[in-house]
Design a protein around this nucleic acid. Structure first.
Length: 865
RNA sequence: GCCUGGAUGGCGGAAUAGGUAGACGCAAGGGACUUAAAAUCCCUCGAAGUUUAACUUCGUGCCGGUUCGAUUCCGGCUCCAGGCACCA
């Protein structure tokens, strides 16, 4: 063993040894308990960033810890490899998305290996390979067959110059993020997954995921957004048509004075046809459709609308209600029609004010009486019914039930539930994605690709067209095909590809049998490994990815491929990696090396000499110039120091503030342990670790021995219960500090070396999931030939956890006044006696008779006077 | 606007079946070693006050409550972060 800790040298040595011994490769072992640990797989964006390092370090510690506890641990890694950045990079660098992607994968794989993560690399997968996405296409066909996938016209963000659909995230202030031109709403035929069928189930199970953070399940519940109410039909005057409306406030139906339809509502042009309003309505629809979608969801967006020229009838009051089309009515929610009750809904109130529509209050607040003339705003609270016929005087919540009964009895409507969650549109007019396996034939219509023709391989020799347009529709050899049903030769393939979230919705199942060629996965492997015991990733996926994955699991369950409904038993959402930013008034964000230290303290810009302000601590990002490159850390400190700091600086669920000096401190600790080991190595090399009762030891040795056991207990609890690695590491630091206090000549040599060997081995094993190379090297130096990963996690002796003495705190009236030590379990009367005799205590008691004395065994005495 | 979290020294963070607030680390200051530096080791380190050495008072965002005792429980605020947002 070297005198000096040389991280690079030992890390390379052990990484290749582990790889040669296939230490991390696992297979199904029916008689061994399994543990499936999964971290969210990365997008191959170029290189690993600190967020990855943190995420995968947390996962690796748990994987290694569970392995040492005897579990058969599945810990795979792969690549979420389809997506837009590859296309953008291909355009920018004039390469092919596949080339760019595979290059990045090769580089990032190398980086992950340098960090010493215990992945079973034989299970590596990339979602952009036909071997992977063919099963996604297969599942799509199954879903189509079962009606779970369907095609419909819907509105999308469309950029005309780029000829493509944009995700909402790609629309910036109404303009295309790439070409800067205005984005408009376009109606397109799109494929959808019927996730809304599972809305209720997904919602109900949110409360049956005790291993998930409440924050995430709450976010999912809100996203699904269940609302209970009623659907009421409003007949159009002098017509057979009835407009169904969803409302959560059917108690206010007597106050409905007009109706609003979404501009996209199909009835709107029909109603206006032939009326004097026809032209105005058409103009309004056109104008709204040109507006960017997200601007319609802004706070100060003004409510406006146009009368359609027609009326409907309030089924309760018989009142004529003008039908408007209004920009605040959303086609996607409920039925796309709103019964407007201006007295009790602020939006309706504003609208009524603008267009001079009547306001009829139907719910009075407690002890008040509303009337139209002096209402300044809508009243949305509860109260007693008025202007509502037979329901007057009832509390509105009670009337709600009665009105629903009446609606149902008269056939005018019924109780209904509405969800915010919409079906998942998966079509992307993109090249770098999995082709949707569908064919359009003039004779047969929409025809699924026969299973035996899968996979529909994405033509990899194709190149992106101007502005990033997909080449697929222009490639005859891809887009033109023969109809599988009628054999017409002029059928066309679907040239849209699937949303990349589809790939990430089932990759965890694929990891169980990644090379399975005749099915999506091997049922026996999935039955053994799934569900994932612990999933770890960023909270930014709290809704989309995690909800889609839960949905897919239900689909697979319904199709009969699996027998569980929830994919992830426990979820840990780790915080972001942040760092302080530096700003120059002239040059904006600066790299740390661009800030010069001034003699009088403070910083100045090396470009312009102006004072630099050290700004807020923010998530690391290139634009804020506060990123730390993992390569630099690997170069300077090695993987173990990097891993140690990531775990020590903060508990995993919280944001981590990067500190260059903190990293220094972590490196210092490892060096300190190294030197400690070196100094004791000769002495303990022939010794056997002491594992007897602590009573046979004395002095510092006894303290050290006890501390070792206490540390095992604490570290185990910290990792097991809550993944608090920061406090686990602190505990090991305390043990190391204690070991430094042992005199090399203290006591009996046999006892001394036995205790020190035990303590040293304890430190090494407790640290081994965290700093695996470092620990492995020391373990080896102590004469062990096996990998630390295969050594059982240390256990502690109960009798070594017991303190020899208790420190008893003495309080007078709850204030700390004195303390003394006593033997453990000294009886209460004795403690009282000692406390009352204490000089400092007597000073505060001041001769007064104690009113009451509270004694907590082994802890404190509180004297109340 | 609605829903979640959070607030503790100069800093990251410890401590909750209510019982020594500030573990561990970083930074800072002092000292040792060294020709010197680095590295290492030792000491101090919440604030204020009295005073040459211990003590006193205050202190976990703010106000109040329960209790012998509150960072911890309850009620009411303030600020910060995240999510959703014209959802009828």
């Amino acid at each position: 063993m070297d005198e000096q800790y040389d991280a690079r040298k030992i890390e390379q040595k052990w990484q290749s040894a582990w790889e040669q011994n296939r230490l991390f490769e696992v297979e199904v072992k029916a008689d061994t308990p399994k543990y499936y640990l999964l971290e969210m797989f990365p997008y191959p964006s170029g290189k690993i960033h600190m967020g990855h390092v943190r995420n995968y370090t947390i996962g690796d510690v748990v994987a290694r810890y569970k392995r040492m506890q005897g579990f058969n641990v599945l810990h795979p890694m792969g690549w979420d490899a389809f997506g837009m950045p590859a296309e953008n990079a291909a355009i920018a660098n004039n390469t092919h998305p596949a080339q760019w992607t595979y290059d990045n994968i090769a580089y990032m794989r190398h980086q992950l290996k340098q960090l010493g993560f215990s992945y079973d690399w034989t299970r590596e997968l990339a979602t952009c390979t036909p071997e992977y996405y063919r099963w996604e296409q297969w599942l799509f066909l199954k879903m189509y067959e079962k009606g779970m996938a369907y095609r419909k016209e819907s509105f999308v963000n469309w950029c005309e110059p780029c000829q493509t659909v944009l995700a909402n995230e790609q629309v910036e202030a109404g303009m295309c993020w790439r070409c800067g031109q205005a984005v408009r709403q376009k109606k397109l035929n799109q494929w959808f997954f019927r996730i809304s069928d599972y809305a209720d189930d997904l919602l109900v199970y949110c409360d049956q995921l005790p291993g998930w953070p409440d924050k995430v399940t709450t976010m999912q519940k809100n996203w699904i957004g269940r609302s209970q109410g009623a659907e009421i039909r409003f007949a159009v005057e002098e017509s057979d048509t009835a407009i169904p409306v969803f409302t959560t406030r059917h108690d206010t139906v007597f106050g409905a004075t007009f109706m609003c339809l979404a501009p996209e509502h199909p009835l709107v042009p029909q109603l206006a046809a032939g009326t004097a309003q026809e032209k105005a309505v058409a103009e309004f629809i056109e104008r709204i459709s040109l507006q960017e979608r997200s601007s319609r969801a802004v706070d100060n967006y003004e409510k406006e609308g146009v009368f359609t020229g027609q009326y409907c009838i309030n089924p309760m009051t018989g009142r004529r209600m003008p039908i408007y089309t209004a920009n605040f009515a959303l086609m996607e929610y409920g039925t796309g029609a709103v019964m407007s009750v201006p007295a009790h809904d602020q939006r309706d109130f504003d609208f009524a004010g603008k267009y001079g529509l009547p306001i009829i209050p139907v719910v009075n607040p407690q002890g008040e009486s509303l009337n139209e003339a002096d209402m300044a705003e809508a009243y949305a609270g509860d109260g007693l019914m008025i202007n509502s016929g037979e329901f007057d005087g009832q509390p509105n919540r009670q009337a709600m039930d009665h009105i629903a009964d009446l609606l149902e009895a008269k056939g005018l409507g019924q109780r209904a539930v509405s969800f915010r969650l919409r079906d998942w549109g998966i079509s992307r007019q993109r090249y770098w994605g999995a082709p949707i396996p569908m064919i359009y034939c003039e004779t047969c219509g929409t025809v699924p690709v026969p299973e035996e023709d899968l996979p529909i391989v994405l033509p990899e020799e194709a190149h992106l067209l101007d502005g990033g347009r997909s080449p697929l529709p222009t490639l005859d050899y891809f887009a033109r095909t023969t109809c599988p049903r009628c054999r017409r030769t002029d059928a066309r393939r679907e040239t849209d590809t699937m949303d990349t979230f589809v790939e990430s919705s089932w990759y965890f199942e694929r990891y169980c049998s990644p090379h399975c060629n005749d099915a999506m996965f091997d049922p026996a492997a999935v039955a053994y490994w799934m569900p994932v015991d612990q999933y770890i990733g960023g909270v930014e996926h709290a809704i989309l990815h995690l909800l889609y994955s839960r949905y897919f699991t239900r689909v697979l369950n319904d199709i009969g491929l699996i027998d569980y409904k929830e994919p992830f038993t426990r979820l840990l959402t780790q915080g972001m990696v942040c760092k302080e930013t530096m700003t120059c008034p002239e040059h904006g964000f600066l790299f740390p090396e661009q800030a010069r230290e001034e003699k009088g303290g403070g910083l100045s810009c090396s470009l312009c000499d102006q004072a630099v302000t050290v700004g807020r601590v923010e998530k690391m990002s290139k634009s804020k110039r506060n990123v730390v490159d993992p390569n630099v850390l690997l170069e300077r400190y090695g993987a173990d120091t990097t891993r140690l700091f990531c775990l020590f600086a903060a508990p995993p669920e919280r944001d981590l503030e990067w500190s260059d000096q903190g990293v220094e401190g972590s490196a210092r600790f490892l060096n300190r342990v190294w030197r400690l080991a070196v100094s004791w190595l000769d002495a303990v090399s022939g010794a056997t670790a002491y594992d007897g009762p602590p009573e046979q030891l004395a002095g510092t040795l006894r303290q050290t021995y006890k501390k070792a056991h206490q540390t095992i207990e604490k570290v185990t609890r910290d990792i097991e219960d809550r993944f608090h690695f920061n406090t686990a590491i602190s505990a090991v630091m305390e043990l190391v500090n204690q070991m430094h206090a042992v005199d090399p000549d203290e006591g009996d040599a046999g006892r001394r070396t036995g205790v020190m060997r035990h303590a040293l081995e304890t430190v090494i094993l407790l640290l081994s999931p965290i700093v695996p190379h470092f620990s492995q090297e020391l373990w080896h130096a102590l004469g062990h030939s096996e990998s630390t990963l295969l050594v059982a996690w240390p256990s502690f002796r109960k009798d070594a956890l017991v303190q020899d003495e208790a420190t008893i705190v003495v309080q007078v009236n709850g204030k700390l006044r004195s303390r003394f030590s006593a033997e453990m379990d000294t009886d209460e009367d004795k403690l009282k006696e000692i406390a009352l005799a204490d000089e400092k205590v007597r000073k505060f008691v001041d001769g007064k008779a104690p009113k009451k004395i509270i004694v907590v065994k082994n802890k404190l005495v509180n004297i109340v006077v």
